[in-house]
Write a protein that binds this DNA or RNA. Structure first.
Lengths: 211, 211
DNA sequence: ATCTGTGAATTTCTTCACAGCA
DNA sequence: TGCTGTGAAGAAATTCACAGAT
């Protein structure tokens, strides 16, 4: 059993960025990369990058840099990406459909196993390569497909209820696109991907730019 | 000219959440709210909420709480949401289409004025209530429609080029859904809304939960 | 009596700067 | 020499705790 170093949240949030940047370098055939180079591509300072990697007990070579593939391996391990994660999308509206068919998920080891909705008009229709299933079947599907992550793409008014159902079915990790704050019990992690919130933060900065 | 208090980034990122929470309270008919109540709904601590609001030079009433509508007004002002912002969506794939038709934007004062793509098969088709326009027309459209914010919903390989074109056309605020880091000149703000990154961060936490 | 607004204390995050290894 | 890894310093964000307004 290793020391189980606690990686700070701020660092965890950057690891996927480094992984993506390393992927680009790997595709380009680079075997090694220095912290300066990688930091440049990832859009952070070199010191921050090195500090972040040090939490992984990392493995650079002094005087040389990091082995690209090895570092990708280390980061993937740290993030828990060594095996595939099963995901369910709740809500088969425009956004839910786009998410269910999003190639980027599969490329990074997230398999959309099901898309569900509670609208009888939508249940049974095809989306990407799935048939939309009845939300009432959620608990069975979560169990059978070993769903670990739920993506909420329903209107704000339904989001809390869908969230409660996901939690009741045993899902402990939720990505919500609904513009509301979700209340969950301890042990459940929710990340908000609220598109309007992002625009509002941009508006703040845009407003400052104006003379 | 006011003191131009600098609101910390961390606070700015929470203001939209407070605004949303206040909207729910307002719809419910509440006239005032205490920091404890609002913090509960917004999912933050009461101390943090009060500190955040204090950066707006805010206006609660001791012994009572905050006037809901007045506080919404104050936050909207601080975020620069007092007038409507014009937005263009670049990329008319699944995600771009979903974004162009997303009601949440309009509800919060962001008007999607155009959706553009560079694929001849897609240009001219209808999406939501827009006709997809040629990306080559970007600069003209940005000027005519006074586009202040660009949303990038194109594949990773095209993202940097589209970003450069937006910047060249005068857009200084960009929300990118592409899973890459974008390089931009000073004065341009980019926010990443990388869906895979969010799942990877969730995976980290989900992995920790496992016994 | 209640609840805000805020200095002060604390914790977390970032940057600095350099010792130490290849 | 060149670049990593990391203590120490510094900055930012959060929490505490209470003075002060209503």
């Amino acid at each position: 059993m290793t020391t189980m170093r606690t990686v700070p949240d701020a660092s965890v949030a950057r690891l996927p960025v480094y992984l993506g940047a390393l992927g680009v370098l790997a595709d380009r055939g680079d075997r090694t990369v220095s912290s300066d180079q990688l930091a440049e591509v990832a859009g952070v300072s070199a010191a921050k990058l090195r500090k972040d990697l040090s939490y992984l007990g990392s493995n650079g070579i002094r005087g040389v840099g990091y082995d690209v593939l090895l570092l990708m391996e280390r980061i993937s391990e740290a993030l828990g990406l060594t095996s595939e994660w099963s995901v369910a999308v709740i809500g088969a509206g425009n956004l839910g459909q786009a998410l269910a068919g999003y190639d980027g998920f599969a490329e990074r080891g997230f398999k959309v196993q099901a898309i569900l909705d509670d609208d009888a008009h939508v249940i049974g229709t095809r989306v990407a390569d799935h048939v939309v299933q009845d939300l009432a079947e959620l608990e069975r599907i979560v169990g059978e497909k070993h769903i670990a992550i739920g993506i909420i793409a329903v209107p704000a008014v339904s989001a809390q209820q869908v969230c409660d159902e996901l939690v009741a079915a045993g899902v402990q990790s939720i990505l919500s696109f609904a513009p509301t704050v979700l209340q969950v019990p301890h042990g459940v992690t929710v990340r908000r991907a609220d598109l309007s919130t992002e625009l509002q933060i941009l508006a703040f900065h845009a407003d400052k730019e104006k003379l």
